[in-house]
């Protein structure tokens, strides 16, 4: 199973890097979104992969019943998902305004900083 996850993560990373290296600025952002998925999965797999119970405390108990999933990576990823959405939303708007200003979506034309 770990091998499969490793291949998925590597595959998404490869797709993300390829898209980021495109000249179209839209693909750049899509690549970033893919990169976020890959990174989240990477953290997720580091927490150990086994089919367990969610880290919830059942009524009447004081701790989750074993075997419970590791809650720490989940908390970290939750933060990461939300942050990456915020960043991507901001970038999408920024990029659409920038490409309106430049009149093109080719990043090779985005070279002058002050105009």
């Amino acid at each position: 199973m770990q091998v499969l996850i490793a291949i998925i993560i590597g595959g998404i990373f490869a797709c993300a890097i390829y898209m980021i290296l495109r000249r179209s600025i839209v693909k750049l952002i899509m690549g970033l979104a893919l990169l976020g998925h890959a990174a989240n999965l990477l953290i997720f797999s580091a927490g150990g992969l086994f089919r367990a119970r969610p880290a919830l405390v059942a009524p009447g108990e004081t701790a989750p019943l074993a075997p419970a999933a590791d809650p720490l990576p989940q908390a970290l990823i939750l933060t990461a998902i939300v942050i990456s959405f915020g960043v991507i939303a901001f970038m999408m708007v920024l990029v659409s305004r920038a490409s309106e200003a430049v009149g093109n979506d080719d990043t090779d034309l985005f070279t002058a900083t002050d105009q």
Binding site: Q2, F13, I17, L21, A38, D70
Partner: peptide
């Protein structure tokens, strides 16, 4: 470049799983 990067990440994940899963603060 993308394939090399992906392969490197795959290798990284595989290496990481080889380490025993230690007790965390979790």
């Amino acid at each position: 470049v993308a394939l090399a990067g992906g392969a490197m990440m795959t290798g990284l994940v595989l290496m990481a799983t080889a380490f025993p899963h230690t007790e965390s603060v979790a």
